[in-house]
């Protein structure tokens, strides 16, 4: 590869980093509940993405990086013999206030979910991926996705205050 080719490749990757980082960081934060862990996770995923960048099609880059992020995290779980859900809530967002506190509640509840359920809930309801897309990304069956989503939502639902009208909706 010539020097100009490398420069063009790096420029395209730098642009991708700039565009994709906010989304990846937020996904990572929901998965980890920690700013530092999210930064570390996203940086690791982007570094891995750079290594295979020449084989990634432009419009597939973000899903590809997200796949690496999820697998990077899975790999970390394997190497650390599994992650145990923490009793303590994740770090609070930088912005304080009543609204943020309310909204952060779901993230605190999310941290208490088993890992697989947490990943499925984040991918389904934050990244808005279809059940098939989540199954493909995690390498599990669609049935497993449905099961994990159902269980995750049931746990979250049980933790939500019961006097809110939105808790009356049925789980699909």
């Amino acid at each position: 590869m010539s020097r100009s080719d490398k420069a063009a490749r790096d420029a395209a990757f730098a642009d991708f980093v700039t565009r994709s980082t906010p989304s990846l960081l937020r996904t990572a934060w929901l998965l980890t509940g920690s700013h530092d862990a999210a930064h570390e996770l996203v940086q690791g995923a982007l570094v891995k993405t750079y290594v295979v960048w020449s084989r990634v099609h432009e419009d597939e880059a973000l899903p590809y990086a997200r796949r690496i992020l999820i697998n990077h995290r899975t790999d970390t779980w394997r190497k650390t013999r599994g992650e145990h859900p923490v009793a303590e809530p994740p770090e609070r967002p930088h912005h304080d206030g009543t609204t943020a506190d309310d909204r952060d509640r779901v993230v605190r509840m999310l941290a208490a979910l088993p890992d697989q359920q947490r990943r499925v809930v984040v991918l389904r309801y934050y990244n808005d991926l279809s059940e098939h897309a989540v199954a493909d990304l995690l390498g599990i069956s669609v049935g497993s996705v449905k099961s994990a989503a159902s269980r995750g939502l049931a746990t979250l639902r049980a933790s939500y205050p019961t006097n809110e009208s939105t808790t009356e909706g049925s789980l699909r």
Partner: peptide, 10 residues
Amino acid sequence: AAGEVAFDHL
């Protein structure tokens, strides 16, 4: 919740 979180620049 995710939208309100501020992250350092990468």
